[in-house]
């Protein structure tokens, strides 16, 4: 198979960004900076992998940012609440992790249920749940910030900051999720079915594919990944507030599209999503590391790059 711009585009953009970054600042390629960028990409990255499946199957989920904030708040409250009985330690972390995963699964299931069984547009459903989760976390935090008990914070901190062989846990988890996602998308029956459903749900139905089940699973899978991302997020600052995860959904969607997945569904590429996430984090990182560009323009630069990435990919469509 010949390599074309469609495949090369995102990689090329990433390489260019890395070169630009390295030229601008000598610390750019330092282990510390690389670790920083990869770790902070992990939240959006883990979510974006799930988003790739949802979008590939012709859906959309706007609620993930709020959902992450809500789950983070819930996880903190569960751990704070059980602290007097269980005491600080890994068992309590386990309970928090379990709560986050369960909440993610349920939230994903709710979105999926409303989209498939109740037959409401995904855009509307998740716009609704987005508002619901955002309000809930504000309410739980009483308008302020939910903070994990200080003793517990020291216990849970390593989940974000430590790792093995000098690679931090968020990077490891992100990599594992991405590899699993890519494998399922390319070689799993589920990935194939998701693409078929997104491509044409009638064809999928007439081909004995259980369309609702596939759609539902994409949302549940995404919810679970939001839970995992939250588990990585909470140890970082040990707090959650109504400003947690704001606009994560759009960053995740942007990453998915930059990576070459079609917004209207039918074709998805998990490795592209990973590249997309890295591109977005690198833009921020490089702008922070360099002087000369007004920080007011960060958003504009991101916007231009998102649009460019999509144009690059469409070129090839027009030719082929």
């Amino acid at each position: 198979m010949k390599l074309d711009l469609h495949v090369l585009g995102p990689i090329l953009a990433l390489v260019v960004l890395v070169l630009v970054g390295a030229a601008m600042n000598s610390n750019f390629l330092s282990a510390a900076n690389v670790t920083n960028v990869l770790s902070r990409s992990a939240f959006i990255g883990i979510i974006a992998v799930g988003m790739t499946f949802v979008i590939t199957a012709g859906g959309l989920d706007l609620s993930v940012g709020s959902m992450a904030a809500f789950i983070a708040g819930l996880m903190i409250m569960v751990m704070n609440g059980l602290l007097p009985t269980m005491g600080p330690g890994w068992p309590l972390v386990g309970v928090g992790v379990g709560a986050a995963l369960l909440a993610g699964l349920l939230a994903g299931f709710l979105n999926g249920f409303l989209v498939t069984t109740m037959r409401i547009e995904a855009f509307i459903v998740t716009l609704g749940t987005m508002g619901i989760y955002r309000s809930l976390v504000t309410w739980l935090a009483d308008g302020g910030t939910l903070s994990l008990d200080f003793g517990m914070r020291t216990v849970i901190r390593p989940i974000y900051y430590n790792g093995i062989l000098g690679i931090s846990w968020p990077i490891i988890v992100f990599a594992l999720v991405a590899i699993a996602g890519e494998t399922i998308m390319r070689r799993g029956a589920f990935g194939r079915h998701a693409a078929a459903v997104g491509s044409n749900d009638q064809v999928a139905r007439y081909s004995s594919v259980d369309v609702n089940r596939v759609r539902m699973l994409t949302y549940v899978f995404l919810g679970l990944l939001v839970g995992i991302a939250t588990i990585m997020y909470v140890p970082r600052l040990g707090s959650a507030s109504s400003s947690t995860g704001v606009l994560w959904e759009l960053e995740a969607i942007a990453a998915v599209i930059i990576g070459g997945t079609m917004l209207k569904g039918g074709f998805g590429r998990v490795w592209g999503t990973v590249i997309g996430v890295l591109i977005l984090s690198l833009i921020d990182n490089i702008l922070n590391l360099t002087d000369g560009v007004s920080p007011y323009l960060n958003g504009a630069i991101q916007g231009v790059i998102i649009i460019l990435a999509v144009i690059l990919q469409r070129e090839r469509k027009a030719e082929g």
């Binding site: 600042n25 610390n27 750019f28 330092s30 510390a32 900076n33 920083n36 902070r40 910030t145 970082r236 600052l237 707090s239 507030s241 400003s243 947690t244 704001v246 921020d284 990182n285 922070n288 590391l289 002087d291 920080p295």
Partner: peptide
Amino acid sequence: IDMEHGNWNRDDSFTVMQDFLSK
């Protein structure tokens, strides 16, 4: 020596500060 917007937000300021420390 450097000034960026952290948007009165914990996550944003964490990211910006990490980059300041690298720089």
